[in-house]
Simulated scan of single mutants.
Amino acid sequence: MALLLSLLTALVLLSSGPARTLGCDPLEDHVLLSRENVELLRDMNSISPLFCLKDRQHFRFPRAVVDGSQVQKAQALSVLHQMLQQISDLLATENSSVPWNTTLVDLLRTGLHRQLEDLDTCWAREMGEEGPALATQGPTLALKRYFQGIRLYLKEKQYSDCAWEVVRVEILRSFSSTIAALQERLRNEDGDVGSP
């Protein structure tokens, strides 16, 4: 009976799999999952960007918040968390999936949700009491303002298909930029490991 219980326990653990939970250190796991989410955003393209040229908007992504050479690990986690949360909230907006394949939107929402859950665990472990304070500092506030501008734009455009396409392209660009900056930070961190 004990052998059967052990086998069932092992089966449950294997079925949940290590891929379901990301580690907190290094940040590489989160960067890889973010790249998967970026690919889903890229695949969601449903309208020719040329068709929506009249709706283009410059949202002024705050690049300073993702400068890979200056961002500390705590800030990097905070920025990534804020970016994922804001994208997730935006996709939860009424009529957000009108122009897109709902299967891809659902996959993206699931990926974002999974990564946010894992980051919340990391947040608690890595930041402790410092975490809530980071959420109110410059980088995360700048991201909140940036996404507020996106929400206002969508409202002004009455959540049209072209407005959503412009937002998809903008989020793809800013999210890719964030991931690239975090990868740069990781490369710099790896290079510093051998330094005296």
Rank of each mutant, 00 (worst) to 15 (best):
P18S: 12
K157C: 04
F51V: 14
S176M: 08
A76C: 01
K155P: 03
I150T: 03
D118I: 04
L33A: 12
N45P: 05
L182Q: 00
V38D: 08
V98T: 12
L7F: 12
Q75K: 05
D161I: 07
K157L: 12
G68C: 02
R187P: 00
L13H: 01
L80S: 01
S160I: 11
E28M: 07
F51R: 15
S15M: 11
L152K: 06
G68E: 00
A92G: 10
F59T: 01
A92R: 15
E129V: 11
L90M: 09
Y159P: 05
Q137S: 08
L22K: 02
W100S: 11
G17S: 15
S195T: 15
V38N: 09
S48C: 07
S34I: 13
E126Y: 13
R42A: 12
F59N: 02
E117I: 15
L27A: 02
Q57K: 15
I47G: 05
G128I: 09
N37C: 07
L108G: 03
V65D: 00
L32A: 07
E184V: 02
L4A: 15
G149C: 12
T121P: 06
V169E: 15
L80C: 03
L8K: 12
L33P: 01
L91N: 09
K144G: 05
R151Y: 09
F147R: 02
F175L: 04
I47H: 04
T93M: 14
L5M: 07
F61H: 01
L33E: 10
S48F: 10
I171G: 00
I150Y: 02
Q70G: 06
L7G: 03
S46V: 09
S96N: 06
L8H: 04
A163E: 01
R63F: 04
P26I: 08
S34G: 15
T140R: 04
E129P: 03
A74I: 05
S176H: 11
N45A: 13
I87Y: 14
Q57M: 15
L108C: 07
R187L: 06
A142E: 05
L27K: 03
K157W: 13
C52L: 14
V105D: 04
R56T: 13
T103C: 02
L141H: 02
D25K: 13
L152I: 12
R151N: 11
Y159M: 09
R173D: 01
R187D: 09
R125N: 13
D55Q: 05
L27T: 01
L108W: 09
T121I: 14
L80M: 14
